[in-house]
């Protein structure tokens, strides 16, 4: 049996005294796309924060590549290939596109390699490489955020609210790229509040409500339960 690349076992997490995750179990296999869906405040972003090592769980285990790495620092995980693309376009808006890509060389990848991957995946960024990133459209900014994450050849990719504030056509385009990335064998855990588009590229979907996972299953099956979860049914 294949060992999961990413696994949360009975994870509980809190901000101060307020517990927001009440025992999360989640498994991501190599090359699998798992969609974590749920209404605002369900704990989806906190789950990603635990998975990326940014938030240490109060109990439970974070397993990466079969090893218990609970309490590991996020930069250790990022350097080895667990990449997070945060909510709200994690870019430096006052830097140019190229300067933003320079920031991706932290992991020891050369700038030429970063640019090759970024411009290969998103040719539009090449046309805009001298433009200040904050003046690009929302979709292009999200592409830049993804390009920076992909440049380090992640083994596991964590995507937070890729669709936030973007037009449906742009969201569709971005998820097309996510599907391409998944075909290369990268494991992807994607968190979304609204976009059903993600269900088209996911192998497995989970609904999260009030800090617990309510349902896990094939996307088609989970989609039927979505409305009830959002409306508190």
């Amino acid at each position: 049996m294949t060992q999961p690349l990413l696994e949360l076992r009975g994870v509980r997490a809190a901000y101060g005294t307020i517990e927001v995750l009440h025992g999360i179990d989640l498994v991501v296999l190599p090359g699998q796309v798992v969609a974590l869906l749920g209404p605002n405040g369900a704990g989806k972003t906190t789950t990603l924060a635990v998975a990326s090592g940014q938030l240490e769980p109060t109990s439970g285990q974070l397993m990466v590549a079969g090893r218990d790495v609970t309490g590991i620092s996020p930069d250790e995980l990022a350097r080895r290939g667990l990449t997070t693309i945060p909510e709200g376009k994690g870019i430096f808006p006052n830097l140019t596109v190229r300067e933003n890509l320079v920031m991706a060389t932290y992991a020891g990848v050369s700038l030429s390699k970063v640019e090759e991957v970024a411009y290969g995946q998103f040719p539009r960024l090449k046309e805009r490489r001298t433009q200040v990133a904050g003046t690009m459209s929302g979709g292009e900014q999200q592409m830049l955020a993804m390009a920076r994450g992909l440049a380090v050849e992640p083994a596991v990719l964590l995507l937070d609210e890729l669709s936030m504030g973007l037009a449906p056509l742009v969201v569709e385009e971005l998820y097309g790229i996510v599907a391409q990335i998944a075909r290369t064998g990268t494991s992807i855990l994607v968190v979304e509040q609204f976009a059903r588009t993600v269900l088209g590229v996911a192998d497995l979907a989970a609904i999260m409500v009030n800090g617990t996972i309510r349902q896990v299953g094939p996307p088609a099956e989970v989609e039927r339960e979505l409305s009830a979860a959002y409306l508190g049914g």
Binding site: L29, P30, A65, R183, G185
Partner: peptide, 17 residues
């Protein structure tokens, strides 16, 4: 590449972890 199959990159990731 079907889900559940380790690529060279995934194998390298496992080794590093």
């Amino acid at each position: 590449i079907p889900a559940g199959v380790d690529t060279a990159r995934v194998a390298q990731f496992r080794d590093e972890i």
